[in-house]
């Protein structure tokens, strides 16, 4: 009855992604030990961004879903970033 064949993600792939996520976590912890001053936050958020991309695409199988889901998720993330940006326009220039 299903309208299209559902993509099955293999265990190896899931475990591989898990490995990458754990390595990235340890990496972000290690990075804070080095003195990067203001770049530290950016690096940490960058790594978090990469991690969440993996979670979204593989664990939440956006990569294998219809395009509409990827479009929606992309727009929502953009929306949150724009709202944070506009709010900061107030506080950064006060």
């Amino acid at each position: 009855m299903a309208e299209e064949k559902h993509h099955i993600i293999s265990y190896q792939k899931l475990l591989g992604v898990l490995g990458i996520l754990i390595v990235l976590t340890l990496l972000s912890v290690a990075i804070t030990e080095i003195e990067l001053s203001r770049w530290a936050t950016i690096a940490a958020l960058l790594i978090a961004g990469i991690k969440s991309t993996f979670v979204l695409l593989i664990f939440m199988h956006l990569r294998f879903d219809q395009r509409i889901f990827r479009v929606m998720v992309g727009l929502i993330i953009a929306l949150v970033l724009v709202v944070i940006f506009i709010t900061m326009l107030d506080f950064m220039f006060r």
Binding site: L79, V82, V83, I86, L89, D90, F91, M92, F93, R94
Partner: peptide, 21 residues
């Protein structure tokens, strides 16, 4: 409409940049 909320706060003491935007 999602990005215009600040026009309710023109006299609240926001920054000039935000007011303008």
């Amino acid at each position: 409409g999602y990005f215009v909320w600040g026009h309710h706060m023109f006299t609240s003491g926001m920054s000039g940049t935000a007011l303008f935007t």
